[in-house]
Amino acid sequence: MADSPVVIAVKDAGIRFKRNRRSRRSFKDLFAGRRRRSRPGEFWALRGVDFTVRSGEAIGVVGRNGQGKSTLLKLVAEVMLPDEGTVGVFGGVAPLIEITGGFVDDLTVRDNVFLTAGLHGMKRSEIEERFDEIIDFAEIGDFLDTPYKHLSSGMKVRIAFSVISRLEEPILLVDEVLAVGDKAFREKCYRRIEELLEGGRTLFFVSHNERDLKRFCTRGLYLDKGKLVLDAPIGDVLARYNADYNS
C-alpha cells in the first residue's frame, strides 16, 4: 500500500456548526481560506484532523455518537466544505451514506433505478446493461412498477444499496446504512463489499460494530470530541476506544 497513490488527503480540517443550523461562511472567508473563531452558540464538530488514505486501503472510523464520524464522512463525500483546512479526494466516490436520499416517492422502482444511477453518473446504456443485475441483487423484481413510497424501509435500502454498489467509482464510503436490512440481506451486502475490496477499491467505513470493522478494515481512525485521537491498525484503535469507553 505504501507505493499506492493517495486518494484522500485531509489536512488540518475543521468544520463548525451553530447549535440550531449550519454555520454560514462568506465567499470571502471561503476563498481567503481564513480561520474563524467560534462565536457564542457555535461549536466545532471537527477540528485539526490530519490523515491520508492510499488506494486500496480499508479504513474504519470509530468513536462515540456525536464525535464527528458522520461529519467526516460527509466531508470526504464532498457534500460539506471544511471551515478550515483542506479535504482532497482524488477519484470518484460511491457513497453508501443516507443511500435512500434522492429517490422520488411517487416514481416507480424502475424509474428510480434509472434516475438515481443517472444522477451518480451512469449512462443510460450502462444502466440498461446492469438493470437485471441490480434488481436480482435487491430481490425486488415483483415491485418494479410499484411506487417507491409503498416499499418497506428494508426494501428501500435493498434497492438503494444495489444501485450504489454497482457504481464503478474507486472510493467506497460506507456509513451504518444496513441496520434496517434483514440479517440474510445484510450478509449479502457485506459479501458484495468484500468483492469490491478484492477488486482494489478503497473503503472508508464508519461503524460501531467491532466485528464488521475487523472484517473489512486493516486501519482505524478514532475520533473523540471532534479530534483525531489515534490513527493505527484497527485492532489497536478498537482496544484504545474500548479502554476509554469503559474507563
Rank of each mutant, 00 (worst) to 15 (best):
V93W: 09
V93Q: 03
T100A: 13
D111G: 05
T100K: 02
F103T: 02
F90E: 10
I99D: 03
G101C: 00
G101N: 15
E98V: 01
I99A: 04
R110I: 04
G88H: 15
L115R: 04
R110S: 08
G102K: 03
D105V: 07
A94I: 12
T116M: 12
G88T: 15
G101F: 03
P95E: 15
F114N: 04
G92I: 06
G91L: 11
N112G: 10
V93T: 14
D105H: 07
V109I: 08
V109N: 02
R110M: 08
V93H: 08
L107Y: 11
E98G: 15
L115T: 14
T100V: 13
F103H: 03
V109R: 01
G102H: 05
F103D: 07
F90I: 06
N112V: 07
V109H: 01
I97G: 01
D105C: 02
D111R: 08
F114T: 10
P95T: 11
V87M: 13
I97A: 02
V93N: 05
V113K: 08
D105S: 14
V93D: 12
L96I: 14
T116S: 14
A94E: 09
L115Q: 11
T100C: 06
G102V: 07
T108P: 03
L115C: 04
D111Y: 03
V89L: 13
T100W: 00
G92Y: 07
I97W: 08
G92F: 04
T100M: 09
V87F: 13
N112L: 05
G101V: 08
D111M: 03
T108M: 05
E98Y: 01
R110A: 12
N112T: 13
F90P: 00
G92C: 03
T100Y: 06
D105G: 12
I99P: 11
P95V: 07
R110Y: 13
F103Y: 13
G92D: 15
N112Q: 08
V113N: 06
G88P: 10
V109T: 04
D106P: 09
F90D: 07
I99M: 15
L96Y: 07
A94T: 13
V89F: 10
V109L: 11
V89W: 09
E98N: 03
V104W: 00
P95M: 02
T116H: 14
V109E: 04
I97S: 09
L115Y: 11
V93Y: 05
D111T: 01
F90Q: 11
R110D: 15
G92L: 08
I99G: 03
